Simulated assay, not measured.
Amino acid sequence: MGVSMGVMDWLGRCPLVAILRGVRPDEVEAVAEVLVAAGIVIIEVPLNSPDPIASVGRLAARFGDRALIGAGTIRRTEEVTAVAEAGGRLLVTPHAAPDLVRAAKARGMVTMPGFFTPAEAFALIDAGADALKLFPAEAGGPATLRALRAVLPGEVPLLPVGGVDAGNLAAWRAAGAAGYGCGSSLYKAGDTPDAVAAKARALVAAL
């Protein structure tokens, strides 16, 4: 339960998860700086970004005491190892992969695997997942999250990812979301730190 409390501590500071898909190592620190300044302290670098392990390493070295840094789009055990060795403490997957959850938990990482059905959710919970990422969230909308929330254990945080923006945060919250994964509504490849800062402020204000 201790690590699960850790997840809630981070989400309590700010329930937004920044998904920096496409970010480069030479720009990732400047982008993260404006996110942390806006109060966003959970940052994920998807592995389909340029040299993502280098970005995770840079973020962990600079923000590891102030933010929960990790990687997303993780699909293999060796990727879990690489992220952990770079200093990443957060595992996010696009799919329901109990084996990856167990591998990450063995390394003391916080896990936020993806799911879409109750069967997937319970398999991930049994594997020790700290939080669950409803993905692709826009395919079901808040009504799907509300229905899932009714059957899943109340202490397991659910976070919609996909199509989440400042305009629909309230609807997701009403449906039972404990946090929100924000990709293009927060960062698109090539965005300047100033552009990201403006989007971050808008999302934090919408909370």
Rank of each mutant, 00 (worst) to 15 (best):
M1G: 15
M5S: 14
G12C: 15
C14L: 13
V31Y: 00
V31T: 14
E33I: 03
L35Q: 04
V36E: 12
I43V: 13
P46G: 08
N48S: 14
S49K: 00
A54G: 05
G57Y: 01
R58F: 13
A60G: 11
R62D: 09
G64H: 06
D65P: 02
D65G: 07
D65R: 14
R66K: 15
R66Y: 09
L68C: 06
L68P: 02
A71H: 00
A71D: 03
G72I: 10
I74A: 04
R75N: 12
E79Q: 12
V80W: 08
G87K: 05
G88I: 03
G88Y: 07
V92A: 01
H95L: 10
D99V: 03
A104E: 00
K105V: 12
A106V: 10
A106C: 11
R107L: 14
M109A: 13
P113M: 05
P113G: 03
E120D: 09
A121S: 03
A123F: 04
I125D: 01
D126K: 10
A137V: 09
A139N: 11
R149I: 07
P153I: 03
P157I: 13
P160D: 00
A166C: 06
G167Y: 03
G167L: 06
G176V: 08
G176R: 11
A177D: 10
A178N: 08
C182G: 04
C182Y: 03
C182T: 09
S184D: 05
Y187M: 00
Y187Q: 00
A189M: 07
A189E: 07
R201L: 12
R201T: 15
A202N: 11
A202F: 05
